[in-house]
Computed example of a mutant assay.
Amino acid sequence: MAEKSWLTDVPQLDRETLLSIRQTLDEAYRGFSRAYGETIESWFDPILAFLVWFEKLLLATPWWLVILILAGISHFAARSWRLTIGVVISFILIGYFGMWENTMQTLSIITVCTLLAIALGIPTGIAMARSDRVQTIVTPILDVMQTMPAFVYLIPVVMLLGIGKIPGLIAVVIYAIPPVIRLTNLGIRLVDKEVLEAADAYGVTPTQRLFNIQLPLAMPNIMAGVNQTIMMALAMVVIASMIGVKGLGQPVLKSITNQYFTLGLFNGLAIVALAIVFDRVSQAYAKRSQQHIGSRQ
Protein backbone atom coordinates (compact mmCIF):
# COMPACT_ATOMS: atom_id res chain seq x y z
CA MET A 1 0.00 0.00 0.00
CA ALA A 2 1.44 3.38 -1.02
CA GLU A 3 2.43 5.72 1.76
CA LYS A 4 0.26 8.77 2.28
CA SER A 5 1.98 11.91 1.03
CA TRP A 6 2.76 14.50 3.68
CA LEU A 7 1.32 17.13 1.32
CA THR A 8 -2.18 15.85 2.04
CA ASP A 9 -1.75 16.92 5.66
CA VAL A 10 -1.16 20.57 4.72
CA PRO A 11 -4.36 22.60 5.33
CA GLN A 12 -5.61 24.02 2.02
CA LEU A 13 -8.60 25.99 0.81
CA ASP A 14 -11.00 23.93 -1.23
CA ARG A 15 -10.99 24.59 -4.97
CA GLU A 16 -14.36 26.36 -5.06
CA THR A 17 -13.43 28.80 -2.25
CA LEU A 18 -10.09 29.59 -3.88
CA LEU A 19 -11.78 30.15 -7.24
CA SER A 20 -14.37 32.39 -5.61
CA ILE A 21 -11.66 34.54 -3.96
CA ARG A 22 -9.80 34.89 -7.28
CA GLN A 23 -12.95 35.85 -9.17
CA THR A 24 -13.90 38.38 -6.50
CA LEU A 25 -10.48 40.06 -6.62
CA ASP A 26 -10.42 40.04 -10.43
CA GLU A 27 -13.89 41.59 -10.66
CA ALA A 28 -12.99 44.19 -8.04
CA TYR A 29 -9.88 45.23 -10.00
CA ARG A 30 -11.81 45.27 -13.29
CA GLY A 31 -14.43 47.48 -11.68
CA PHE A 32 -11.72 49.80 -10.36
CA SER A 33 -10.14 49.94 -13.84
CA ARG A 34 -13.46 50.79 -15.52
CA ALA A 35 -14.27 53.45 -12.93
CA TYR A 36 -10.91 55.17 -12.56
CA GLY A 37 -8.76 54.01 -15.49
CA GLU A 38 -9.35 57.08 -17.67
CA THR A 39 -8.82 59.45 -14.73
CA ILE A 40 -5.53 57.81 -13.76
CA GLU A 41 -4.41 57.78 -17.40
CA SER A 42 -5.05 61.54 -17.65
CA TRP A 43 -2.55 62.10 -14.82
CA PHE A 44 0.19 60.86 -17.14
CA ASP A 45 -0.74 63.06 -20.10
CA PRO A 46 2.12 65.55 -19.47
CA ILE A 47 4.66 62.70 -19.33
CA LEU A 48 3.18 61.15 -22.50
CA ALA A 49 3.34 64.52 -24.29
CA PHE A 50 6.99 64.96 -23.29
CA LEU A 51 7.86 61.39 -24.31
CA VAL A 52 6.21 61.78 -27.73
CA TRP A 53 7.90 65.17 -28.25
CA PHE A 54 11.33 63.83 -27.27
CA GLU A 55 10.95 60.78 -29.51
CA LYS A 56 9.94 62.93 -32.48
CA LEU A 57 12.85 65.27 -31.77
CA LEU A 58 15.37 62.41 -31.84
CA LEU A 59 13.86 60.98 -35.04
CA ALA A 60 13.72 64.37 -36.78
CA THR A 61 17.25 65.42 -35.84
CA PRO A 62 19.92 64.49 -38.43
CA TRP A 63 21.80 61.37 -37.42
CA TRP A 64 25.19 63.07 -37.46
CA LEU A 65 23.96 65.78 -35.10
CA VAL A 66 22.54 63.19 -32.67
CA ILE A 67 25.86 61.36 -32.67
CA LEU A 68 27.73 64.64 -32.17
CA ILE A 69 25.52 65.56 -29.18
CA LEU A 70 25.87 62.10 -27.62
CA ALA A 71 29.64 62.20 -28.12
CA GLY A 72 29.75 65.64 -26.50
CA ILE A 73 27.75 64.45 -23.49
CA SER A 74 29.99 61.39 -23.17
CA HIS A 75 33.18 63.44 -23.31
CA PHE A 76 31.83 66.00 -20.82
CA ALA A 77 30.89 63.25 -18.37
CA ALA A 78 33.93 61.00 -18.77
CA ARG A 79 36.71 63.23 -20.17
CA SER A 80 37.89 60.22 -22.16
CA TRP A 81 38.56 60.38 -25.88
CA ARG A 82 38.63 56.59 -26.07
CA LEU A 83 35.11 56.36 -24.68
CA THR A 84 33.90 59.21 -26.88
CA ILE A 85 35.23 57.50 -30.01
CA GLY A 86 33.60 54.25 -28.87
CA VAL A 87 30.24 56.01 -28.55
CA VAL A 88 30.57 57.46 -32.06
CA ILE A 89 31.51 54.11 -33.61
CA SER A 90 28.68 52.30 -31.79
CA PHE A 91 25.97 54.65 -33.06
CA ILE A 92 27.40 54.72 -36.58
CA LEU A 93 27.22 50.91 -36.68
CA ILE A 94 23.66 51.00 -35.31
CA GLY A 95 22.65 53.31 -38.15
CA TYR A 96 24.61 51.34 -40.74
CA PHE A 97 22.71 48.13 -39.90
CA GLY A 98 19.33 49.85 -40.17
CA MET A 99 18.41 50.08 -36.49
CA TRP A 100 18.58 53.86 -36.07
CA GLU A 101 14.83 54.53 -35.72
CA ASN A 102 14.26 51.73 -33.20
CA THR A 103 17.34 52.82 -31.24
CA MET A 104 16.11 56.42 -31.02
CA GLN A 105 12.71 55.19 -29.79
CA THR A 106 14.42 53.05 -27.16
CA LEU A 107 16.74 55.91 -26.21
CA SER A 108 13.78 58.24 -25.71
CA ILE A 109 11.84 55.94 -23.39
CA ILE A 110 14.95 54.91 -21.43
CA THR A 111 15.88 58.58 -20.94
CA VAL A 112 12.38 59.51 -19.74
CA CYS A 113 12.15 56.43 -17.48
CA THR A 114 15.56 57.18 -15.97
CA LEU A 115 14.70 60.83 -15.31
CA LEU A 116 11.40 59.79 -13.73
CA ALA A 117 13.10 57.11 -11.62
CA ILE A 118 15.70 59.64 -10.42
CA ALA A 119 13.02 62.26 -9.65
CA LEU A 120 11.06 59.74 -7.56
CA GLY A 121 13.89 57.56 -6.28
CA ILE A 122 16.37 60.06 -4.83
CA PRO A 123 13.79 61.88 -2.64
CA THR A 124 12.50 58.48 -1.47
CA GLY A 125 16.05 57.38 -0.64
CA ILE A 126 16.64 60.64 1.26
CA ALA A 127 13.44 60.09 3.26
CA MET A 128 14.58 56.55 4.10
CA ALA A 129 17.99 57.80 5.22
CA ARG A 130 16.47 60.44 7.49
CA SER A 131 13.82 58.21 9.09
CA ASP A 132 14.15 54.62 10.28
CA ARG A 133 10.35 54.34 10.23
CA VAL A 134 10.21 55.26 6.54
CA GLN A 135 12.99 52.75 5.84
CA THR A 136 11.05 50.04 7.68
CA ILE A 137 7.96 50.74 5.55
CA VAL A 138 9.67 51.17 2.16
CA THR A 139 12.18 48.30 2.34
CA PRO A 140 9.60 45.46 2.08
CA ILE A 141 7.97 47.27 -0.85
CA LEU A 142 11.34 47.43 -2.61
CA ASP A 143 11.91 43.74 -1.86
CA VAL A 144 8.62 42.88 -3.59
CA MET A 145 9.41 45.15 -6.55
CA GLN A 146 12.82 43.53 -7.07
CA THR A 147 11.74 39.90 -6.65
CA MET A 148 8.43 39.99 -8.50
CA PRO A 149 8.76 38.49 -12.04
CA ALA A 150 8.89 41.26 -14.63
CA PHE A 151 5.91 39.90 -16.57
CA VAL A 152 3.68 40.29 -13.50
CA TYR A 153 4.10 44.08 -13.65
CA LEU A 154 2.39 44.11 -17.03
CA ILE A 155 -0.88 42.51 -15.86
CA PRO A 156 -2.31 45.24 -13.58
CA VAL A 157 -0.86 48.05 -15.70
CA VAL A 158 -2.43 46.74 -18.91
CA MET A 159 -5.76 46.05 -17.18
CA LEU A 160 -5.78 49.61 -15.84
CA LEU A 161 -4.34 51.62 -18.75
CA GLY A 162 -4.47 49.34 -21.78
CA ILE A 163 -1.73 49.07 -24.41
CA GLY A 164 0.67 51.91 -25.20
CA LYS A 165 3.64 54.00 -24.15
CA ILE A 166 2.46 55.01 -20.68
CA PRO A 167 1.75 51.45 -19.42
CA GLY A 168 5.18 50.44 -20.69
CA LEU A 169 6.81 53.44 -19.05
CA ILE A 170 5.13 52.69 -15.70
CA ALA A 171 6.18 49.03 -15.85
CA VAL A 172 9.79 49.99 -16.66
CA VAL A 173 9.96 52.57 -13.84
CA ILE A 174 8.52 50.13 -11.27
CA TYR A 175 11.04 47.48 -12.34
CA ALA A 176 14.04 49.83 -12.49
CA ILE A 177 13.59 52.26 -9.59
CA PRO A 178 14.64 50.13 -6.54
CA PRO A 179 18.45 50.42 -7.04
CA VAL A 180 18.51 54.22 -7.03
CA ILE A 181 16.32 54.29 -3.89
CA ARG A 182 18.42 51.71 -2.03
CA LEU A 183 21.80 53.18 -2.95
CA THR A 184 20.73 56.76 -2.19
CA ASN A 185 19.65 55.60 1.26
CA LEU A 186 22.87 53.60 1.72
CA GLY A 187 25.13 56.41 0.49
CA ILE A 188 23.66 58.98 2.89
CA ARG A 189 23.77 56.56 5.84
CA LEU A 190 27.44 55.78 5.13
CA VAL A 191 28.54 59.41 5.43
CA ASP A 192 31.13 59.68 8.20
CA LYS A 193 29.46 60.56 11.52
CA GLU A 194 32.44 62.71 12.53
CA VAL A 195 31.92 64.89 9.47
CA LEU A 196 28.28 65.37 10.42
CA GLU A 197 29.18 66.15 14.03
CA ALA A 198 31.68 68.77 12.83
CA ALA A 199 29.00 70.30 10.61
CA ASP A 200 26.57 70.43 13.53
CA ALA A 201 29.26 72.11 15.63
CA TYR A 202 29.49 74.88 13.02
CA GLY A 203 25.73 75.37 13.27
CA VAL A 204 24.64 74.25 9.80
CA THR A 205 20.94 73.67 9.24
CA PRO A 206 19.58 70.20 8.35
CA THR A 207 18.95 71.39 4.78
CA GLN A 208 22.50 72.72 4.42
CA ARG A 209 23.89 69.50 5.86
CA LEU A 210 21.89 67.44 3.36
CA PHE A 211 22.72 69.40 0.21
CA ASN A 212 26.26 70.56 1.06
CA ILE A 213 27.63 67.51 2.88
CA GLN A 214 25.56 64.33 2.72
CA LEU A 215 24.50 64.33 -0.95
CA PRO A 216 27.95 65.29 -2.32
CA LEU A 217 29.64 62.59 -0.22
CA ALA A 218 26.97 60.06 -1.17
CA MET A 219 27.19 60.92 -4.88
CA PRO A 220 29.30 57.86 -5.90
CA ASN A 221 26.67 55.55 -4.39
CA ILE A 222 23.83 57.56 -5.92
CA MET A 223 25.48 57.38 -9.36
CA ALA A 224 25.92 53.63 -8.93
CA GLY A 225 22.19 53.45 -8.26
CA VAL A 226 21.44 55.50 -11.37
CA ASN A 227 23.72 53.19 -13.35
CA GLN A 228 21.88 50.09 -12.14
CA THR A 229 18.51 51.74 -12.81
CA ILE A 230 19.52 52.38 -16.43
CA MET A 231 20.68 48.78 -16.83
CA MET A 232 17.42 47.40 -15.44
CA ALA A 233 15.37 49.75 -17.63
CA LEU A 234 17.20 48.46 -20.71
CA ALA A 235 16.61 44.89 -19.57
CA MET A 236 12.87 45.65 -19.40
CA VAL A 237 12.72 47.03 -22.96
CA VAL A 238 12.03 43.66 -24.62
CA ILE A 239 9.32 42.76 -22.11
CA ALA A 240 7.71 46.21 -22.42
CA SER A 241 7.53 45.72 -26.20
CA MET A 242 4.79 43.14 -25.52
CA ILE A 243 2.44 45.97 -24.52
CA GLY A 244 3.15 48.29 -27.42
CA VAL A 245 6.40 50.07 -26.51
CA LYS A 246 8.21 50.69 -29.79
CA GLY A 247 11.95 50.35 -30.08
CA LEU A 248 14.59 47.66 -30.17
CA GLY A 249 12.45 45.30 -28.12
CA GLN A 250 9.83 44.76 -30.84
CA PRO A 251 12.25 43.29 -33.43
CA VAL A 252 13.64 41.02 -30.71
CA LEU A 253 10.12 39.88 -29.84
CA LYS A 254 9.37 39.37 -33.54
CA SER A 255 12.54 37.32 -33.96
CA ILE A 256 11.46 35.07 -31.07
CA THR A 257 8.00 34.42 -32.47
CA ASN A 258 9.23 33.92 -36.06
CA GLN A 259 12.65 32.39 -35.31
CA TYR A 260 14.62 35.16 -37.06
CA PHE A 261 18.04 34.59 -35.50
CA THR A 262 19.91 37.44 -37.22
CA LEU A 263 17.20 40.03 -36.57
CA GLY A 264 17.17 39.20 -32.87
CA LEU A 265 20.97 39.10 -32.67
CA PHE A 266 21.51 42.51 -34.30
CA ASN A 267 18.84 44.27 -32.22
CA GLY A 268 20.06 42.52 -29.09
CA LEU A 269 23.58 43.75 -29.80
CA ALA A 270 22.19 47.28 -30.24
CA ILE A 271 20.63 47.04 -26.76
CA VAL A 272 23.98 45.79 -25.45
CA ALA A 273 25.74 48.74 -27.11
CA LEU A 274 23.35 51.19 -25.43
CA ALA A 275 23.87 49.45 -22.09
CA ILE A 276 27.67 49.61 -22.41
CA VAL A 277 27.59 53.30 -23.40
CA PHE A 278 25.30 54.25 -20.49
CA ASP A 279 27.31 52.09 -18.07
CA ARG A 280 30.74 53.46 -19.03
CA VAL A 281 29.61 57.09 -19.14
CA SER A 282 27.78 56.98 -15.78
CA GLN A 283 30.64 55.12 -14.09
CA ALA A 284 33.22 57.54 -15.45
CA TYR A 285 31.15 60.50 -14.28
CA ALA A 286 30.75 58.96 -10.81
CA LYS A 287 34.52 58.39 -10.59
CA ARG A 288 35.24 61.98 -11.66
CA SER A 289 32.77 63.38 -9.15
CA GLN A 290 34.35 61.31 -6.37
CA GLN A 291 37.82 62.59 -7.29
CA HIS A 292 36.49 66.15 -7.35
CA ILE A 293 34.99 65.74 -3.88
CA GLY A 294 38.26 64.23 -2.63
CA SER A 295 40.27 67.14 -3.98
CA ARG A 296 37.92 69.63 -2.27
CA GLN A 297 38.41 67.88 1.04
Rank of each mutant, 00 (worst) to 15 (best):
A273T: 13
W64E: 13
R209M: 13
S42H: 10
V172I: 11
V87Y: 04
Q259Y: 10
R82V: 13
D279K: 06
S282V: 15
S255R: 09
K246W: 13
R182A: 08
R30N: 15
I40Q: 00
I126W: 11
G203D: 11
T139I: 03
V158G: 01
K287F: 08
T106K: 12
K246H: 15
T207F: 14
G268W: 05
I174T: 01
F261C: 00
M148R: 10
D279M: 00
G31T: 09
L248H: 06
A127H: 06
S131P: 00
G247L: 03
L19M: 15
L115W: 12
F54Y: 11
A284Q: 09
V252N: 05
D45C: 02
E41G: 03
Q105W: 08
G37F: 14
G268Q: 00
G162I: 07
V52Y: 05
N258M: 12
A2F: 06
L51T: 00
L210E: 02
K246Q: 15
T103D: 07
L7I: 14
R209C: 01
P206L: 03
H75E: 08
L116N: 01
L183C: 04
L210D: 08
K254E: 14
T136Q: 15
W6P: 02
G168M: 00
N185E: 13
D14G: 07
Q250I: 12
Q291H: 15
L107C: 12
P62W: 03
I166W: 05
R182F: 02
G121Y: 00
V87C: 14
P149Q: 13
G225C: 08
M99F: 00
L215M: 04
L48W: 02
M145F: 07
D26I: 14
A176P: 04
I110F: 07
V172F: 00
V52K: 03
L59A: 03
K4D: 01
Y29W: 13
I110L: 12
Q297W: 10
N258P: 01
V245W: 12
A35R: 14
V158F: 04
L161N: 04
Q291D: 15
I40G: 01
N185V: 01
G72Y: 03
G86T: 07
A286F: 01
R288I: 04
Q291W: 03
D26A: 08
L19Q: 15
G244T: 07
S20C: 10
A49C: 00
V180G: 01
A270S: 05
P178T: 03
V10A: 07
L160M: 09
A270V: 11
A150S: 14
N227L: 07
V112A: 07
L70P: 07
L68Q: 04
S80Y: 13
W43C: 03
K4P: 02
R133D: 10
T24Y: 14
Q259H: 08
W81D: 09
E41D: 08
W81E: 11
W53V: 03
D14W: 12
A176V: 04
L57V: 06
T124R: 06
L25P: 06
I126N: 06
D14A: 09
A235N: 06
S255F: 02
Q12C: 14
P149L: 07
P178S: 08
I271K: 09
P178F: 02
W64G: 06
L115V: 10
E16S: 13
A60P: 02
V152W: 04
